[in-house]
């Protein structure tokens, strides 16, 4: 059965710090005791996300920290109760048919959450057993996955001593152990060395070729570009752009971005920059603390610099800094939000 993912107007408002992010627990003094006097803080994590992810697609959620990516994944994997809206895996309503949904999905959390009381192989075997995989098949699959993730020689060791990269590989192997139709990966390559990242991408593509749907979150542009067939860019709990990486990059005026910083502010300069050949959009950088920074979206990068320098000197304004970005998803994010993805 091929399963896609749909969400309609998903909303999530946290009234206490989200446990998935806080790491803390319920203290003696926290909770309802204080509730009456102090209004509960409301954190809007999702503000109406609607997505249609096709069966067999590798789909990426791209956005900065706190954009709502993990909360979206949390709702789709039954771990977060939505405040509003609906979500489906295949034809199953995620909130109403949780057990059936859990059979279809495999989940790799942002932080490794391996069972420290078990060895690597046991982690895979028990995970398979939770999903009712028979013992012969369990042993076979565990061997194949340990091999594929280059963990065979560490299979019988406790995972407590594993490096971060090894834990991440084992987490992904575990999520694949029951052969789920939909695989969720929350920042799968965060903290991995380049070689392991490439291995991981290869395995994800391979898994996708067998017809599985994959939803991953990332704030790594390169990963989104290299791996995802389609992307949604998310910021402040909203979907701000959707398309293939190519389409999205093409939606940035010109493609190139020149971030300029001048010695002083000059409205006249701003106007003159707009007349440059190849400049598609010129605007004061909204993210900057002063208004001496200007973003120029253009179809060229380097060749424009000398013309800009000439314009600046004729306007009697000092050009202090130039930064050129080639067409990228980073530029797209900047264009939509005025902020860098790493902010």
């Amino acid at each position: 059965m091929l399963a896609g993912i749909r969400t309609r107007d998903l909303r999530k408002i946290y009234t206490s710090p989200p446990p998935l992010a806080s790491g803390g627990g319920f203290g003696f003094g926290s909770g309802r005791g204080k509730g009456k006097k102090q209004p509960k803080p409301q954190i809007v994590a999702l503000d109406g996300i609607s997505l249609d992810i096709l069966p067999g697609e590798i789909f990426g959620l791209l956005g900065p920290n706190g954009a709502g990516k993990s909360t979206t994944l949390g709702i789709l994997t039954t771990r977060v109760r939505p405040t509003g809206g609906q979500a489906w895996i295949g034809e199953l309503d995620v909130w109403r048919e949780q057990v059936a949904v859990k059979r279809l999905i495999g989940v790799v959390a942002q932080r490794p959450n391996l069972d420290f009381a078990l060895t690597a192989r046991e982690i895979l075997l028990f995970h398979g057993a939770y999903f009712g995989v028979d013992s012969h098949q369990r042993a076979e699959r565990a061997d194949v996955l340990l091999d594929r993730f280059k963990l065979r020689d560490r299979g019988d060791q406790m995972v407590r001593g594993f490096s971060g990269g090894m834990m991440q590989r084992l987490s992904i192997a575990r999520a694949m152990m029951h052969d789920p139709q939909v695989l969720f990966l929350d920042e799968p390559s965060a903290g991995l060395d380049p070689q392991t990242r490439l291995l991981l991408w290869e395995i994800i593509r391979e898994y996708n070729h067998s017809g599985k749907t994959i939803l991953l979150t990332t704030h790594n542009m390169e990963e989104a570009d290299a791996l995802c067939q389609r992307l949604a860019i998310i910021d402040h709990g909203r979907n701000i752009a959707l398309g293939t990486p190519g389409e999205l990059k093409a939606s940035v005026p010109g493609g190139y971005l020149l971030r300029l910083r001048f010695g002083s502010h000059s409205p006249e300069l701003l106007q003159r920059l707009q007349t440059l050949t190849g400049a598609r959009e010129v605007r004061a950088n909204p993210d900057s603390k002063n208004d001496n920074s200007i973003d120029v979206y253009a179809d060229r990068g380097g060749p424009l610099v000398s013309e800009i320098a000439n314009l600046a000197s004729s306007a009697n304004v000092e050009l202090c800094d130039v930064h050129i970005s080639e067409p990228s998803l980073e530029n797209l994010f900047l264009h939509h939000t005025g902020r860098s993805l790493r902010d």
């Binding site: 989940v107 932080r111 959450n113 069972d115 420290f116 939770y130």
Partner: peptide, 15 residues
């Protein structure tokens, strides 16, 4: 539940 989050895998078991 808090530090190692080991329980997450079992919370995702089909039950």
């Amino acid at each position: 539940f808090q530090f190692t989050r080991e329980i997450e895998d079992r919370l995702l078991a089909p039950m």
